[in-house]
Design a protein around this nucleic acid. Structure first.
Lengths: 233, 233
DNA sequence: TGTGACATAAAAGTCATACTTTTAATTCCC
DNA sequence: GGGAATTAAAAGTATGACTTTTATGTCACA
C-alpha cells in the first residue's frame, strides 16, 4: 500500500512525484537540478536519477540549457502504479477513482468471461472461498475483513483470465476498492445484492458459463458506477 | 513509433531494456553496474540512471551487495508504452499482440458507448471523416493509407470517451493495428464488413446512440479476435 | 557437530568536482 | 531590421573517494 524505498532516492522521488501529480509545479513549470539538489539537500547525482525516473513516467522532460519541464497531464503514464498511488493520495482523488472505476467496468466483465474458460480447479476453489468469505463478513460492520475478501476475489478473477494485461490490474482494483471503503461510507454494511452477485460469479466460473460470468460481473460493475454517480440512477 | 533519445542514456536504456524483455538475461540473472559500464563503454553514472529507470518499470531490482537482479515477467509494468514497444520488437510479439487485442476488445466497446454520450460535434465530424477515409482506401492495396485512418478513428473514439485511462490507450491501439497490418497478410484488402462497422459506429456516436455504438464496436472487436484465432470460429 | 556471534569484503549508494555538449539568448555587424 | 557569430546557462558525462548495507565465510563455544 505504501511506497517502498528507504534510500535518499526514494524519498526525493516520492516528494517530487507527489508534488507534480498534486498540481504544485503545474505543467510548464521549469525546475533546475542544482536548485532541486539544494532544496532536498542531496547531491546532483541523486536528483538526476530521480529526474530520469520521472522522465520515464512522462511527468517531466529534461532539456539542455532549459531545465526540467513539468509536462501536461495528457502525457503522464497514468497506468504506472506509482503514478496512480500518487494521484490517489492527492487532490483529484475522486476524479481518479471515477476514471479507474470506469476502466474496471470495462475490463472485469471480459476478464470474468475468460476466467470461466481458463480458471484452474484451484482458482475456482479460491474464488468460491473468497465469495463465501464476503458473505460471512458482509454484516455487522466487519468492513475491513470484507475488503480483504473483496480484493482477493477480484484479483483471482483477473489472474484466472489468463491475460497478463488483466492480471496486472489487480493492484489498481485493490487500490480502488480500498479507497472506496475508506472514503465512502464506512458505516454501512455492503450491499447484499452485490454480495450475492459475487457468489453467483464464482458459481458461473465454476460451471464454465462464460456468458453468465460476464453478465453478472457487468452487474457488479454497474453497481460500482452507480455508487460513484457516474451513471444516472 | 520509434524510441526517441539520442544521448548515451537512451542508447544504453534501449539496449538493456530490449535485452531483458527479449529474454536474454532471464529472470534471476544478476548484473553488476561496473560490468555494465564496461560492456557499454559508459560511466557508472549513466548505468546507474538506466538501472533506476528499469527499476521503476519493475524490470529489475537493485540490492546492495547483490547487484541488479532481473525480475520475473509478472512484475513488469506491462502497461508502460516503452515496455510494450520493446516486447513487440522481441520474440513473443505474437503473444503480446494477442493479449493487447483482448484488452482492446474489453475497453473499446465501453469507450465507444461513452463517446456517444460525450463526443463534441468536432469529434463526431472527425470520426465520420476518418470512417469515410477508411472506406475510400479500403480497396486496391492502399493498406498504409487505410491504416492511418484506422488508427485515427480508434484514437478519436478513445479520446472522445472522456476517460483519461481510455484515452491513454491510443498508442497501444496504434501499435497493435500497425503490427497487424505489417505482419499479418498485407496483401489482402481489409474486410469490407469491418469497414462498414466503422462507418456505423461513427453514425451511432453522431446520433448519441450509446448502446448501438457499444454493440457495433464489440462486433469489430470480435472480428479482431477471430483474426488472431483467439476466438473459436 | 551444530549454532550463534563476529569479521570480512563485495557491491550498491552517495557525494564533490571537473569537464563536455547542447542550445537559448544576446550581441554585433552588415 | 535581419542574420551570423558569440556567450553563457543548464544538462550530460566522467572519475575518484568515501559510506552503507549485507551476504557469506570464520571461529569460538556449547
Amino acid at each position: 500500500m505504501t511506497t517502498p524505498g528507504q534510500g535518499l532516492h526514494s524519498h526525493v522521488l516520492a516528494a517530487l512525484g507527489l508534488a507534480i501529480t498534486a498540481g504544485e509545479c503545474p505543467p510548464g513549470t521549469v525546475l533546475r537540478t542544482d536548485e532541486l539538489a539544494q532544496r532536498f539537500d542531496v547531491s546532483r547525482t541523486v536528483v538526476r536519477e530521480v529526474v530520469r525516473v520521472l522522465e520515464s513516467m512522462h511527468l517531466v522532460e529534461s532539456r539542455r540549457r532549459v531545465g526540467v519541464t513539468v509536462l501536461p497531464t495528457e502525457s503522464w503514464n497514468v497506468y504506472d502504479p506509482q503514478v496512480i498511488r500518487w494521484r490517489l493520495a492527492g487532490a483529484d482523488r475522486p476524479r481518479q477513482l471515477r476514471s479507474l472505476t470506469v476502466l474496471r467496468s470495462a475490463v472485469e466483465p471480459v476478464a470474468a468471461g475468460l476466467a470461466a474458460l481458463h480458471a484452474t480447479p484451484a482458482q475456482c476453489r479460491e474464488l468460491t472461498e473468497q465469495a463465501l468469505g464476503m458473505v460471512a463478513t458482509s454484516r455487522g460492520r466487519q468492513l475491513e475483513a470484507y475488503l480483504v475478501h473483496d480484493i482477493a476475489f477480484h484479483r483471482v478473477v483477473l489472474n484466472s483470465s489468463g491475460n497478463e494485461m488483466f492480471a496486472r490490474l489487480g493492484d489498481v482494483v485493490a487500490e480502488v476498492l480500498t479507497g472506496r471503503t475508506h472514503h465512502h461510507v464506512m458505516f454501512e454494511d455492503p450491499d447484499p445484492a452485490a454480495v450475492t452477485l459475487h457468489v453467483q460469479v464464482a458459481e458461473a466460473v465454476r460451471e464454465r458459463d462464460a456468458a453468465r460470468a460476464e453478465a453478472l460481473t457487468r452487474e457488479i460493475a454497474v453497481g460500482a458506477l452507480k455508487e460513484l454517480d457516474v451513471l444516472a440512477p
